[in-house]
Design a protein around this nucleic acid. Structure first.
Length: 567
RNA sequence: GCGACGAUCGUCCAGCCUGGUCUAGGACAUCAGCCCUCCAAGCUGGUAACGCGGGUUCAAAUCCCGCUCGUCGCACCA
């Protein structure tokens, strides 16, 4: 590679971040107060670009499938996130060595020492274990520890009562899961169904380096696809079967492979590299989405999360990564097969029923065993406590399985349990839907888009943003500041604006300078009014990507611009 | 959290070691105007900064301490 080219490659991210700040796409927040890591501001261009990214996402993932969209609160009460497993999984016990102040995951220290850990160990218990086992700091050998939980969710309180703890959501998905029943009913119990949400997620990262890559508050674009676990077909799968993805799957990772290989969706499904059709379909869409944002296919890959690295809710996860020059491979999306983990968890916690049912083609005869309690016999055995048993018994709705070992503390005894075999005609089949989830980080997608749009031509910055993503579609300039030219240019500007096309008017500095200014923010067209306009009503349209100009009648400028709205 | 290094106009950099000459300089960007010109390059003028707090001193951008933030490394990263 040429030295100069190499130099430019190495500075691409910095150049783009610099441009983003200078022109108002985004920048680090609260600098006047000294700054606060992991928080970013989107400026006008950033807001417009993010909106366009979101619209493109809707056009890719939501609208073609008639999926629906919701907007749930960012604040979530603690019990909800306890049920989802986030409170347990986002609250790592951190052990700090009191001598050298290095920090470790306390559970890792214990398991390294060969100690089996229970999920439910309290902070005090962990501290006691560390002391009892005389575990030494791996760095300095000290045995004195301070154990504290580190919470990666932001904690707050709802209302005046201190015990009403809430968190800012670490993902938007939980809002969809807990509202599943109503959403499902509103959508007339269609299955499969996709429910989308665009919103903000919050994570209290320990040290959010890498600027806009790791944020404490960020845009999430999530879609939850609910499907029947016995009918996991995706009706759109044929459209993508031949598409190839670069995949690095778990098996190859465990073999020590580092490189992703191209494989078709068809083959990936046939060889079970991707476990379910919807997941494969969304991965293909995800690749297309990034392609339409300007990221070539070869600069994208899907890396499977190996067991143990995966989130607590996931049966299979692929990270969708984009090569971002100096930053290396950066995850822009996670594609997770969450099974029925979330709905089941919320059911257990709340007693609500998150189920769907499908009508069977023909009713089925099913034999099943049902157990019940013989009250008379129970009374004989437990003359005092039988009422307690019956009270708890009446809360057990599903009696088709084997009876529990004890009810209300009374050991279940065959002497008062009746087990009946019965035959029922089932008209429908009930199930807890399984969930497949593509989840994007908005800022990272936006950055990927800017990185691949960025180019330097004749020492000038040019952002080759696709038309639909460009925050500003056109600049309108009078060639020189003559009153009539300005007037005509202003008229054209108003006309474009009224047509709903974002555009700017600029008459300051030389024409070349103005072209340079709009090139840098990715504005695809410049409309220039010159002397000839005043004679024959034509203007020039100058294209950002070629710097070529053509003359069109000023009446047709809006049409010329609108012709590009799909590109 | 630890360690190393750092923080000056919008941006990049100079000044700091050796305190005063700094009313903090330059370049690019930006703004007003001139020029009236199709690709940032001419001319005139303007706006604009020493991260925060404390100390030393007659005097602090400059020396010292604390804090905040940043970069990198360690650790962490459902």
């Amino acid at each position: 590679m040429h030295t100069l080219e190499l130099f430019w490659m190495q500075n691409r991210v910095n150049d783009v971040l610099d441009l983003a700040k200078r022109r108002g796409f985004f920048w680090a927040a609260y600098e006047t107060y000294g700054g606060s890591a992991g928080l970013y501001v989107l400026g006008d261009l950033g807001v417009k670009l993010m909106n366009n990214v979101e619209e493109l996402w809707r056009d890719t993932f939501v609208r073609p499938h008639d999926f629906v969209e919701v907007d749930t609160p960012s604040l979530m009460p603690m019990p909800l996130l306890e049920a989802s497993g986030h409170v347990a999984n986002f609250k790592d016990p951190m052990a700090e060595c009191l001598n050298c102040h290095r920090k470790y995951r306390a559970d890792h220290l214990l398991s390294d020492a060969g100690k089996k850990i229970q999920e439910s160990l309290s902070i005090e218990q962990i501290k006691k274990e560390l002391t009892d086992l005389a575990i030494r700091c791996p760095e300095c050998g000290s045995t004195s520890w301070e154990v504290k939980p580190f919470l990666t969710m932001f904690e707050t309180r709802i209302g005046p009562y201190a015990d009403n703890i809430a968190y800012l959501r670490p993902e938007t998905a939980q809002g969809i899961f807990v509202e599943f029943n109503r959403l499902f009913q509103i959508e007339r119990s269609r299955i499969p169904i996709g429910i989308a949400q665009i919103g903000r997620g919050f994570r209290n990262e320990i040290s959010p380096r890498q600027g806009i890559i790791r944020l404490r508050e960020f845009h999430m674009l999530e879609l939850e696809l609910f499907m029947d676990p016995n009918d996991t077909k995706c009706k759109y799968i044929d459209e993508v079967l031949k598409e190839e993805l670069y995949i690095l799957d778990e098996r190859r990772i465990l073999q020590g492979e580092m490189d992703a290989v191209a494989i078709s969706i068809m083959d990936a499904l046939a060889s079970s590299i991707i476990k379910t059709e919807w997941l494969a379909y969304f991965m293909a869409l995800s690749q297309r989405f990034l392609q339409s944002l300007g990221v070539p296919r070869e600069k994208q890959r899907f890396v499977e999360k190996i067991t143990g690295e995966r989130a607590h809710y996931s049966a299979q996860t692929f990270d969708h990564e984009v090569f971002m020059y100096e930053l290396g491979w950066i995850e822009v999306a996670g594609h997770a097969y969450r099974t029925d983990y979330d709905l089941t968890s919320h059911m257990k916690k709340t007693g609500a029923e998150y189920t769907a049912s499908v009508q069977l083609d023909e009713p089925q005869k099913v034999k099943r065993r049902v157990w019940s309690i013989d009250v008379q016999k129970l009374k004989e055995r437990e003359p005092v406590r039988w009422k307690e048993v019956m009270k708890e018994y009446s809360n057990i709705k599903d009696r088709t399985n084997t009876p529990p070992q004890s009810i209300a503390g009374i050991a279940v005894d065959p002497s008062f349990i009746i087990i009946k075999e019965e035959e029922v005609m089932l008209q429908s089949r009930k199930f807890i839907p399984h969930v497949v989830e593509p989840s994007f980080g908005g800022e990272r997608v936006m950055l990927a888009c800017l990185l691949y749009a960025y180019d330097i031509r004749d020492k000038r910055n040019v952002m080759h943003l696709p038309y639909r993503l460009a925050p500003i579609k056109a600049g309108v300039f009078p060639l020189v500041n003559k009153l009539e030219m300005e007037k005509t240019a202003q008229q054209i500007y108003s006309k474009i604006k009224k047509a709903g096309i974002p555009c700017i008017y600029d008459d300051s500095g030389s024409i070349g300078r103005r072209y340079a200014r709009v090139d840098e923010i990715g504005t695809p067209f410049a409309v220039t009014v010159d002397d000839r306009t005043l004679q024959d009503s034509t203007v020039t349209i100058r294209e950002r990507d070629t710097w070529k100009q053509r003359r069109v009648n000023q009446e047709s400028v809006v049409d010329e611009l609108l012709r590009n709205s799909n590109s």
